[in-house]
């Protein structure tokens, strides 16, 4: 019984507190949405060229609902990595680290997408999986550097937490927009059939 309880506590300790998960989610939502909104806004003039207004709204709704799903997935991945790695490496300062690592990961993912896209247009196939893994591994060397810096300089996590605090309101607005998008999708599929 005690052994069970202690292993449960051990598992529980591997995962962040509720407040940290919330802050982590905010740290993920902000950069991912900034990126997505810029891309969607770039597309809107094209949509206006050849889609009806209702379809434009629908298209944006599907995109933003998917972005919400992506944010949840990234948050989950961070929590999981934090649980698997030694606690001092990620979990103890998970929010501050996420605030730096998510934009970095976005850059890596974008770089890979550009390579995939070029490869697809030229050869109708994506870059080989080993290159993909290689780029992520090389790209995540900064994880160790960031982790080291955050532990070494106390001022850095403080600054990053302040940044997360400041983007909280706008991130909540983004999340509210995503939930609206989900409602739009439900409405379009249930009430505007065909």
């Amino acid at each position: 019984m005690n052994a069970d309880l202690s292993s449960l506590i051990w598992v529980r300790n591997r995962f962040p507190e509720k407040q940290s998960i919330y802050n982590l989610f905010i740290a993920v939502v902000f950069p991912v949405h900034i990126w997505a909104i810029i891309i969607v806004l770039q597309q809107v003039p094209t949509y206006i060229l050849y889609l009806k207004a209702s379809e434009t709204i629908g298209t944006i709704a599907y995109t933003m609902a998917f972005i919400l799903l992506e944010c949840i997935s990234i948050t989950f991945v961070f929590i999981l990595i934090g649980a698997l790695l030694p606690q001092k490496l990620l979990k103890q300062q998970i929010v501050a680290q996420a605030a730096l690592l998510v934009p970095l990961a976005l850059c890596i993912a974008y770089f890979i997408h550009v390579l995939d896209s070029i490869s697809f247009v030229m050869f109708q196939t994506y870059i080989p999986n080993r290159f993909w893994f290689g780029i992520w591994i090389v790209g995540f060397i900064p994880l160790l550097i960031v982790s080291y810096l955050i532990r070494k300089y106390q001022r850095l996590p403080e600054l990053l937490m302040k940044y997360v605090d400041r983007v909280t309101i706008v991130s909540l607005i983004y999340i509210f927009g995503d939930l609206l998008a989900v409602l739009v999708i439900i409405w379009r599929n249930v009430f505007v059939s065909g």
């Binding site: 990126w35 709204i57 629908g58 609902a65 998917f66 997935s73 997408h113 247009v121 999708i185």
Partner: peptide, 29 residues
């Protein structure tokens, strides 16, 4: 199936191999 066009465009926004600027490079990747 009831909203094929908008959902198709939404899917293209998050993962389209022909488009350099994607809203969701993580998932696409």
């Amino acid at each position: 199936p009831n909203d094929p066009n908008a959902s198709f465009w939404g899917e293209k926004n998050v993962r389209d191999s022909f488009r350099i600027n994607l809203a969701s490079p993580f998932v696409s990747s």
